[in-house]
Amino acid sequence: MKAIGLYRYLPIDDKESLVEEQVPDPVPSGRDLLIEVKAVSVNPVDTKVRAPKDKTEEALRILGFDASGVVKAVGEDCVLFDVGDEVYYAGNIARQGSNAEFQLVDERIVGPKPKSLSFAEAAAMPLTSITAWEALFDRLRISEGDAGKSILLIGGAGGVGSIAIQLAAKANLNVIATASRQETAAWCKSMGAHHTINHKQELLPQLQELGYKDVDYIFCMADTNEHWDGMAACIKPQGAICAIVENKRPLDMGKIRSKSVTFSWELMFTRPVFQTEDQIEQHRLLVDIAAMFDRGELKQTMTKTLSPMNADTLKEGHRLLEQGNMIGKLVIINE
């Protein structure tokens, strides 16, 4: 099969940063599905994994952590899907990725593709949906009893933020999203944010202008170090903060200690990488997310497509993400 990957971790403008090769077709066993990839999304994690580092790979490392496709074969222990089923998934960062004609994925982290979405639209949704869902409901532990509480979403116009806004609004929270440009603020409002503020300015005074003394929850999808002091100032005593961007410097936990604030990380690859006992929860939440799309309760967030899937197209996708101006999601169609 055709696959696009890397042997060395290089700047995206290096001609060897992503290369195309023919590799053996994978064969499913156990609970693995063999999926014919129809479309993939490029995420910040793709660019971070590919970013320059002093490391080489003996075999082609295939990136890609979002996809939609059709089940072509199943392992002997599979019980959730059959050949011919249309699916969407985010995969497992510890295994070969979706930038190929075929991919093996554990069925417990795969969901049925929303019927109302095209393969391209569906490919934009798994990683961001899982991340947003787990952050809000598993890490921050938001429940029905929290209706009416407030949440600050830092970095609202990105892929994760676009879904987090919608899920938080659906949970009847008061949603304040951050955006630094007119077009990103408008996007956040279109996703359901009640208010927007600028994350390039001090956060607390802007919240106070909106009538908020503090907020019950914060979900940070941007530079954690940069926003740490602002989050510590904004969070309500006994509130909760979740972040997804790894810190480059130690976080001063003393700034939230006196408020008895809960802090947690969210990484959607935790369940598949560590093979946790509850990894099937990712299948279940993808089922629920698909139903929400099909009922018209969620909006898909694909804003740009490229095709076909080859090394040059994927390089262009990485370049676009590394510019830092993307709104919504970028999808590459496997034609």
Rank of each mutant, 00 (worst) to 15 (best):
W265D: 08
H227W: 08
I280N: 13
K299D: 11
T313Y: 02
G211E: 00
Q238N: 14
P308T: 00
P237T: 11
Q282K: 09
E266L: 06
R295G: 14
N225M: 07
L314W: 00
L210Q: 05
E297H: 08
L298S: 05
M302W: 05
S258W: 13
I244W: 03
K255S: 09
G230C: 03
T301H: 10
Q323K: 15
S260V: 12
E281D: 14
A232N: 02
T303S: 07
A243S: 13
T301V: 15
M326Y: 06
F269C: 03
A311Y: 00
L286N: 03
Q279S: 10
L285N: 09
Y217N: 05
P272A: 01
V287L: 12
H318P: 04
A243M: 13
M292N: 11
R271H: 13
D229F: 06
S264F: 12
F263Q: 04
A240M: 07
L298I: 08
T224Q: 00
V287Q: 14
H318V: 06
Y212H: 11
K315H: 05
R257F: 14
E209G: 09
R295E: 15
M302C: 05
K248N: 13
V261S: 06
A291F: 08
L210C: 02
M309K: 02
D214V: 08
W228S: 02
V273M: 14
V245K: 04
M253H: 10
N247L: 10
T305N: 05
H318L: 07
P272S: 03
L298D: 01
L267F: 14
P237G: 08
M302L: 08
H283N: 15
D288H: 14
T305P: 03
M231D: 01
Q279T: 12
V287D: 14
D216P: 08
L306F: 00
N247Y: 14
F293N: 01
G324N: 07
I289Y: 02
D294Y: 01
M268Y: 09
E297F: 07
E322V: 02
L251H: 09
N225A: 07
E277I: 14
G211S: 06
S264R: 12
F274L: 12
K259A: 03
P272Q: 01
F293A: 02
T303P: 05
L267H: 12
E322P: 04
G254S: 07
I218T: 06
K248P: 08
T313V: 07
K299E: 11
K248F: 11
